[in-house]
Each structure stands twice: as C-alpha cells, then as structure tokens.
C-alpha cells in the first residue's frame, strides 16, 4: 500500500526531525544561561517549557489528524486495483468518479435513501427526546432527589456496561422475552423496527452527558439558587429560568459537536447485527462503517468511495454546524 501518503509522510518525518533538533539546541542555549531573573529570560524559560509541553501533542495531531484527513481527501480521488493490490489516482477524465458513484447511489438506491432518512430521524429524536431527558435527569440528580446516589449509578450504567453487552441483552430481551408478552417482535416488525432502534439509542445513551451536566449545575452560584428559593419559585421555574440558562454553554458543545453524528452515528447496529443489519434499519454511519472494516481487497476497494462520501458529508455538515453555532450564540442570551 505504498501511496501518495507514504511519500508525504517521509517529508513530515524529516520536518519533525529538524524541528526537534531546533528545539533541543534552543533548550541547550536557554539552560546554559545563568539565572539572573530578568523578565525576558523567565519568558524564554517559559517558552521552552511551553514548547516541550505542546511538542508531542502537536506532532501526534499533525500525523493522526491532519495527515489522516489530508490522506482521506487524496483517497477520494483514487481507485484500488485488485489485480496489483495498489491504490492509483484516477485519471483526469474520471477524477470525480467516486463522488459521482456515491451521488448516483444516493439518488437511485432505495436502501441508501432509507439510510439517509433513518439518520435524520435518529438525529432529530436524539435532539428532541434524549437531550431534554438528559437535562431533566441531571437536574434531579443535582437537586438530590431521594435515592439520588442509586439513580446516579443506574443512569451511568449504560456507560459502564459495554454497549455490545447492553445491545445483546436488549436484543435477547426484546426478541425472546418481550415477544412472549406482547405477542409480536418489536425488532423484526417493519413498522416498529427502526423505532425500537431509536428507543434503544436513547435508552442506552445516558451517562457521560449527565455527568457533565450535573457537574456544570453544581458550579452554579449558590446565592442565585438561594435567591430563587426565597422568592418561592417552583422547581420547574428554577430549572427553566436559572439552571438551564446557566449551563447553556455546556449544552452548546454537545449540540454543535453532535451534528456530525447525523452522518457518523451507526446507531449501535453493528453491535446488534454485525455486518448484516436489515436494509430498513440501516443508517448512513452504519453503511460506511461496514464497508471498510474488513482487511481484505474487497474492503480496500471501498476505501476511495467511503472517503469521497465522507468528504461530501463534511462539506454538508460544516456549514450546518457553523450556522447552528452562530444561531445559538446569537439568539440565546449569554449569561456569562
């Protein structure tokens, strides 16, 4: 798999090397100096330490974030030759072939259309049902409802127990046990199949968000809450008028970062079905995940297609994300 990326990598490696040489010589110079406490030498000491601290994280970032993504863009313009097991750049005439075949799939392929719809449904449900539930539950934990310690553990259980285990138990429970009670199978019935998957995603999605929201809530100034209590406001009003606005910046992070989930969320389907989920249950994230995870030529051949699709998704998702961020900041009054 020698490709354009490997060549780039060589260059990056040599660049990194010269940077590290530069840092080392800089360090040596700095440490050689005696210690008169002038502002500038202290500054320089700080700078050296600063560089030492950020050098590794940045190098790692350069390769595994920037490098990976540049390579991903390059891949979108390549094709895999099964005969030689090599990637080649598409010729000038077929430069955009991967994009074209993805777009035609998106239009003509009924399964892909279903997957797109499912992804949107899942995203909207997560936003409109899971987020409010997360916030309300967090609020109750923060207000220390009776047995809140117990509830806290329960709400964190979906994070502790592996998603694979939770989904297997959910599936066995629904298909074997619940079916005997309600008379039909929620997952295999077409009408309820995807709804059940959505339910599963909300139901098994509690955990980290609650942790972070309750943390944010405990940071709210006590005097504000006390003031509210003196006024005798109800719990609902406290939640709505004090807590929510004050933790809104935290919520914003999840809202904004969550938009990519529209395209990447595979809805736990891989846990449920491995590579063989039914067409009417698939989401976009799942479709692309299962295409490339196997280490064989059939999988390699899908890399360019998946990268092209990813690039297109990114191009769509970025303006949406920026718009959401802009709107959130513009119309939700900041309380800071």
């Amino acid at each position: 798999m020698k490709n354009a990326f490997s060549r780039c990598l060589e260059k990056i490696k040599s660049a990194c090397y010269s940077v590290s040489v530069a840092i080392h010589s800089a360090k040596r110079k700095i440490f050689k100096k005696s210690r008169p406490r002038t502002m500038s030498s202290r500054r320089r000491g700080e700078l050296a330490f600063f560089i030492a601290l950020v050098a590794y994280p940045l190098a790692q970032f350069a390769v595994f974030y920037i490098g990976v993504n540049i390579n991903s863009v390059l891949l979108a313009f390549q094709h895999f030759d099964t005969g030689t097991a090599q990637f080649y750049f598409n010729g000038a005439g077929e430069l955009f072939d991967n994009f074209a075949s993805f777009l035609s799939d998106l239009r003509g392929n009924a399964a892909r259309i279903t997957a797109t719809l499912n992804s949107v449904i899942l995203y909207v449900c997560t936003l409109c049902i899971a987020l409010p539930l997360n916030l309300v539950f967090s609020f109750f934990l923060y207000k220390k409802v009776p047995a809140y310690g117990f509830f806290r553990v329960v709400l964190f259980l979906p994070q502790i127990i592996s998603a694979l285990v939770v989904s297997l138990m959910f599936r066995y429970f629904v298909e074997n046990a619940l079916t005997t009670v309600i008379g039909f199978n929620l997952l295999t019935t077409k009408k309820t199949g995807f709804a059940t998957i959505v339910f599963y995603n909300i139901w098994a999605g509690f955990g980290t968000q609650i942790l972070i929201y309750t943390s944010a809530m405990t940071k709210i100034d006590d005097s504000l809450v006390e003031f509210g209590e003196l006024e005798g406001i109800s719990l609902l009003r406290e939640f709505w008028q004090i807590t929510l606005p004050l933790i809104f910046p935290t919520i914003t992070i999840f809202l904004v970062a969550g938009i990519a989930g529209l395209f990447t969320n595979q809805a736990g389907l891989y846990n449920f079905y491995g590579g063989g989920a039914r067409d009417d249950l698939q989401t976009l994230g799942y479709v692309f995940f299962v295409r490339i995870i196997r280490s064989d030529n059939a999988s390699y051949a899908q890399y360019p297609y998946a990268s092209a699709a990813g690039l297109l998704f990114t191009l769509v998702a970025t303006p949406i994300t920026l718009a959401v961020k802009y709107l959130l900041e513009k119309f939700v009054p900041s309380t800071e």
Partner: peptide, 9 residues
Amino acid sequence: VKTSFDGTN
C-alpha cells in the same frame, strides 16, 4: 412459528 423471522432465532 412466530419467532421464525427473529434474528436471534
């Protein structure tokens, strides 16, 4: 049998 379409079957 009702379970005939179940994936776990």
